[in-house]
Design a protein around this nucleic acid. Structure first.
Length: 478
RNA sequence: GGUUCCGUCGUCUAGUGGUCUAGGACGUCUGGUUCUCAUCCAGAAAAUCGCGGGUUCGACUCCCGCCGGAAUCACCA
């Protein structure tokens, strides 16, 4: 059975660069009826941030990435917080001491720094194994434990990068257990993956160069290597660096409050560095699970492009409305309506949504784009008069036109889109105006918005009373 | 500096020796959809496939060299 894991450290918010290494393991596990484990790597007590774990869980849930073992859901291989697994690491560490593959290192950090400087001035690579202490004390709290490297050539296969190899020069005596008793990532993840039965270790390429050291530890511990999967970086929008907090990488939760749909986020991130070889662009979670394959993950880094995310979000807004129904989209708009919409019924909001949804890039656009449906706009005569189609009319003519519109519209029997369009068409004939002139005038008079849906639809949703009242108000303001 | 990885339109990518005069998508531009904005539709511009050598009848695809970029070299993960 395939077992994958997402193992973040709770050091702050998760941004787009991080989540993708949750998405791929998830897809692989689900595709193969495997298991997905969530493990919290909280061994760095200095960088630990309160509440960060909940944030991670939150983001995963939002994206629809559920886990089979881990915090909240439990499992047979817990605990799932590394800080609660100390005895386990120490037990494995003792095995290494017994087999002579680990030693307590009494050397002070200052001394180590000196060694390092010496190498720098001699321009030789710094390898700690060249400075092993003469006297090895008993391992006890307060003394770090180091791996004893036996450097040699390593070959391995990376499911994404292909066949890899590395020489002895990259293997060193890395720290297994820190002086505070907590294990390092380098040691803890190996123990945990083994104990938890993880079959596919998926992580960013930054770990690729440490792999020979990990391979040595697997060997010393008598463990089988899991399959290794290196994920390429997501690059910052500009420059050539990997996307990080400093490049303004937004928290995933921030995208949620900016009105990005979870479907779009998942779709975009999954396809940033992966594709199924066809020309398909829009994938649902189920489609991703079906089509995903490790060997189609890109080997080079992919630049993060927010414009494409936005486009995809628009696609998803329309897809949900069209395929899952207007109510389904409405359900996701909570919190995105303008304040003035508070008093209005869901039914009315649904009507509004139905005529403006195809111009939304994000749900947050609702705030700017729907205000005039819920409250009377401020009359701004300059805005009206400066319109390129209205500019050439005199004020008297404008007033006349609005008045005839009021007259015509108040006679409409049934206030629906078709009847309204018919009335507008008749008005066009009667006034001898072009659609651009007459419709722009009415549109602006009832909305004072830079843009709005088709005029007949807008009036239908607004209702007879509001439409006529606003037209009258403008006529008397001129 | 050592080690490792990467290199096709501005961006994400298709491409596994001939079907590539290099395909799609985002973005950009043009036109259409009785008004605006958007959707949708049609179309355009945009890649001498990092560079230079080979191998081959033939290379984006295989080999070598170079150049460029990135990652890593912590008692961080």
């Amino acid at each position: 059975m395939i077992v994958t894991r997402f193992a973040p450290s709770p050091t702050g918010y998760i941004h787009i660069g991080n989540v993708r290494s949750a998405i791929y393991p998830y897809l692989l596990a689900r595709q193969n009826d495997g298991k997905m484990i969530l493990r919290i790597e909280d061994t760095d007590r200095v960088r630990y941030v309160e509440g960060a774990t909940e944030l991670i869980e939150d983001v995963l849930k939002w994206l629809g990435l559920d886990w089979d073992e881990g915090p909240i859901v439990g499992g047979n291989h817990g605990p799932y917080f590394q800080s609660e697994r100390m005895e386990i690491y120490h037990e494995w560490a003792r095995k290494l001491i017994e087999s002579g593959r680990a030693y307590a290192d009494p050397t002070s950090p200052e001394q180590i720094e000196e060694y390092r400087k010496k190498c720098n001035t001699n321009k030789t690579p710094f390898l700690y194994r060249n400075f092993r202490p003469k006297e090895i004390p008993e391992w006890q709290p307060g003394i770090p434990l180091r791996f004893k490297a036996e450097p040699k050539n390593y070959e391995w296969h990376d499911e994404v990068m292909g066949d890899m190899h590395a020489g002895p020069e990259v293997q060193d005596d890395i720290i297994l257990i820190k002086k505070d008793g907590y294990p390092t990532y380098n040691f803890a993840h190996i123990v945990d993956d083994a104990e938890m039965g993880v079959t596919h270790v998926m992580r960013g390429v930054e770990y690729l160069s440490s792999t020979p050291n990990y391979l040595a530890i697997y060997e010393a511990l008598g463990l089988n290597r899991p399959k290794l999967v290196s994920l390429p970086h997501i690059l910052a929008p500009s420059g050539n660096k990997k996307l990080g907090k400093r490049d303004g990488a937004k928290s995933v939760t921030e995208y949620r409050s900016d009105g990005i749909l979870a479907e779009a986020m998942l779709n975009y991130l999954a396809c940033l560095g992966w594709n199924d070889g066809t020309e398909k662009e829009i994938y649902s979670k189920d489609e991703l699970i079906e089509k995903f394959s490790l060997d189609r993950i890109q080997t080079s880094g992919a630049r993060y492009d927010e414009t494409k995310l936005l486009w995809m979000n628009g696609q998803w807004i329309r897809k949900i409305f069209d395929e899952q129904g207007p109510e389904s989209l409405l359900a996701r708009t909570e919190g995105f309506w303008p304040d003035v919409a508070k008093e209005h019924s869901p039914k009315y909001k649904l009507k509004v949504l139905s005529i403006i949804y195809d111009r939304l890039k994000t749900l947050a656009d609702l705030r700017e784009m729907s205000t005039y449906f819920f409250s009377d706009p401020e009359i701004d005569l300059d805005f009206l008069i400066n319109n390129k189609f209205i500019k050439k009319m005199s004020e008297a003519e404008i007033e006349d036109l609005i008045k005839s519109a009021v007259q015509k519209l108040s006679k409409v029997d049934s206030w629906d889109a078709d009847s309204l369009q018919q009335a507008l068409n008749e008005l066009l004939v009667e006034t001898g105006k072009k659609p651009a002139e007459l419709f722009s005038l009415i549109r602006i008079a009832i909305s004072f918005a830079p843009f709005s849906p088709a005029l007949n639809l807008t009036m239908e949703v607004m209702g007879r009373e509001t439409t006529l009242a606003r037209l009258n108000a403008v006529a008397s303001a001129i």
